[in-house]
Design a protein around this nucleic acid. Structure first.
Lengths: 231, 231
DNA sequence: TCGCCCTAAAGATATGACGTATTCAAGTGC
DNA sequence: GCACTTGAATACGTCATATCTTTAGGGCGA
């Protein structure tokens, strides 16, 4: 999943630093300076910079250096960018953006899943709904989170739309970030659990409308809770 | 917008070849072979490969070579990947995926735009709706397409959600691809034009529900038409 | 003051050398 | 005959250095 080798480690330094604004938009880095700062060779610096350039976070121009691009140009859908922003000062804004995206996408994915899901998908969804109920009742937040992530990822994957499917990891990151944010205060609400069961049942029954509605209730609720948490 | 220099040109060769399946999933390339095939140095090959690795289209392992990853791992939201797939054999599948994404995202964006749009945004939207009407009546498909792209991009940007905003270019690519696909047959339907005007009016009036509904009608109609075209 | 040209700065590319992980197979022992 | 070990071949990973290309910015002249 991660970029390997020294360029990867350089990215792990530079990416978060840029994403958090520590290296501000418009700042100019020089390749030679980075070589010295991180004690790596030119090759490594250039490959790392190329990757950042690929996500439009920096632009490299002769005679000028490597300039940090304005945020509005970044590939905000790149999983690495999302991870970096969630880990840094941008976390609230990133959670809000992702919250709206979830409200838009997940209900649609649930509706598609009700039509296109394979038998395996439906079985897995039912099983996850049960496990979700169990771990919630046991107040085991860690496994609850794990199953919750798997549940949403399964719905997205079962939609049959590759682009929706790829948001599975992103949604997982949101759920993780959200759980970390309010520091696992209390056990999950029974109402939310019931909605997850309803999504699973509706998908199994092929009822697109009911699946979509139930999922919409889940994600709009999550967004409302998020806005409340963030003020 | 494009990656510059020789690595960029290498990408323009490799990316489409992989995206179209000409270089199939699981295929193994050797760095040295690419040097020879394209007449460039190791430096260039490595930087291009790093970028492809960043989009998870290839993975480079010692003693093995550069292997093409399965499609399911690709960063399907990366603008470059989308462009390559739209240009090649994957175009129908990519258009379908993007169609569903539009149905999910654009109505939500229109609703948000009705609440968050700036005065400039509202003015621009109204102007574009007018120009859309004019160019449609004149059967000027080229400028109609240009205004249509600008219209949808403006709604997405006006939503205030950075992730929605970034889908503007992607939607533009879809509209362009769609126009090319059925070879600009007849002039745009008056009904669709009226819906665009309605979106603009609703956003200006701050009526989120009406904006969302009108936009939903537009994009579901587009998706239905697409499915009909593709069989 | 304006515009052209020159120079130096910094990235872009090429190349040679060495390091290192990984695969595959030969060889050895049981 | 089979399994385990070990070593060599291979292809990427990294570093260092040299040369080319572009271009910002200053200097020069009209």
């Amino acid at each position: 999943m991660e970029i390997q080798g020294l360029p990867g480690r350089l990215l792990d330094e530079l990416g978060p630093a840029i994403a958090s604004g520590e290296i501000p938009e418009g700042a100019v880095l020089r390749g030679e300076e980075l070589e010295g700062r991180f004690g790596v060779s030119r090759t490594v610096v250039r490959e790392a910079v190329r990757i950042l350039e690929g996500m439009r976070m920096v632009a490299s121009r002769r005679r000028v250096g490597i300039t940090v691009q304005p945020k509005s140009l970044w590939d905000v859908f790149d999983p690495m960018v999302i991870r970096w922003r969630l880990a840094g000062a941008d976390r609230p804004a990133q959670l809000r953006s992702l919250g709206s995206l979830r409200v838009a996408v997940e209900p649609a994915a649930a509706a598609l899943a009700a039509v296109h899901a394979s038998d395996d998908d439906r079985r897995e969804l039912s099983a996850l709904a049960v496990e979700l109920t169990v771990s919630a009742r046991a107040a085991d937040l860690a496994t609850f989170l794990r199953h919750d992530i798997a549940f949403h990822a399964t719905v997205l994957r079962a939609s049959g739309n590759e682009m929706f499917a790829h948001l599975g990891d992103t949604v997982g990151a949101v759920l993780t970030g959200r759980t970390e944010y309010h520091l696992m205060p209390h056990q999950p609400e029974p109402y939310a659990i019931r909605l997850h069961r309803e999504v699973a049942e509706a998908v199994c029954a092929g009822d697109a409308d009911r699946a979509e509605q139930a999922m919409r209730t889940i994600v709009t609720g999550a967004l409302a809770e998020l806005n409340q948490q963030l003020g």
